[in-house]
């Protein structure tokens, strides 16, 4: 009966134009529709599948502004049981280390955690390091980039897929897992799930509630600074090459020129 915590993040919809704030180069959350990150939907799906196979409980954990309640509700409407929402103005602009510390502190409030499941990277920041940092802070083994997860009693096995290849990992519980896009196809919520979600408990916490030092979080205390940001240049017309029987050679020459092969 695993007790699972799933990390979820609200991000700008990848279908809309995404921007940074001009003043501090943090994410401009107002400029785009905000949605539950798709990789987190997969993380929730995996947690629900594990739960459905052996019961247990799924808690979603979200660090984000007040409007992130929409993303939390989506995870609850998919079938998660309860939620913890860490919402605090002072977290604005926090780096990954600070974020991991806050998440670790929040996980500390859930009794008897067996598994923490995260997406391998969020579609906005794309740092991809929070799950590993979190495992370090919690003193749990990390099984990242999982494309398949099997929980068997007190152990978990993972097929880890990266550009370097496939690795088979096994660890004792509790453990931290991060999943890739190949892990599963997330379910849609149902209308019944939507109605049930509004009755599920959501605990809202501040940084102070978690006992995290406010001097460790936020933009001013971040270990990295964005000095400059510019929008992606518009796509140019590209280079047209006519195939006069030597198309393959020309493509190869182009790719060599770009140092791609």
């Amino acid at each position: 009966m695993p007790n699972i915590v799933v990390l979820v993040k609200q991000v700008p919809d990848t279908y809309s134009e995404r921007k940074l704030n001009e003043s501090d180069h943090t994410l401009d959350r107002e400029s785009a529709d905000a949605v539950l990150d798709e990789i987190n939907e997969r993380a929730v799906e995996e947690a629900l599948k594990i739960k459905e196979a052996s019961e247990g409980e799924v808690t979603v954990l979200c660090v984000g502004p007040d409007r992130a309640t929409d993303a939390i509700r989506k995870a609850l409407s998919m079938g998660a049981d309860k939620a913890i929402h860490v919402s605090d103005e002072s977290l604005h602009g926090s780096d990954m280390v600070a974020t991991a510390k806050v998440i670790a502190a929040a996980i500390g409030r859930v009794e008897g955690v067996d598994l923490v499941i995260a997406g391998n990277e969020a579609s906005d920041g794309r740092g991809g390091a929070v799950p590993a940092m979190l495992a370090e802070l919690l003193g749990m083994p990390q099984l990242t980039h999982a494309r398949q997860v099997t929980v068997d009693g007190s152990t978990v096995q993972v097929d880890r897929e990266t550009e370097e290849g496939l690795t088979h990992l096994e660890a004792g519980l509790p453990a931290v897992i991060s999943v890739t896009e190949k892990i599963n196809e997330p379910r849609y919520p149902s209308f019944k799930g939507i109605m049930a979600a509004k009755k599920k408990p959501v605990e809202t916490l501040t940084v102070a509630d978690l006992g995290v030092d406010a001097g460790e979080v936020g933009l001013a205390n971040a270990w990295s600074t964005v000095l400059e940001a510019a929008p992606k240049p518009p796509r140019t017309a590209g280079q047209r090459v006519d195939d006069e029987g030597d198309g393959g050679t020309k493509i190869a020459e182009y790719l060599v020129g770009q140092k791609l092969i």
Partner: peptide, 12 residues
Amino acid sequence: TEAEDLIALARE
């Protein structure tokens, strides 16, 4: 809010 979530589901 449930109506908003329902519309979001329909859109998705």
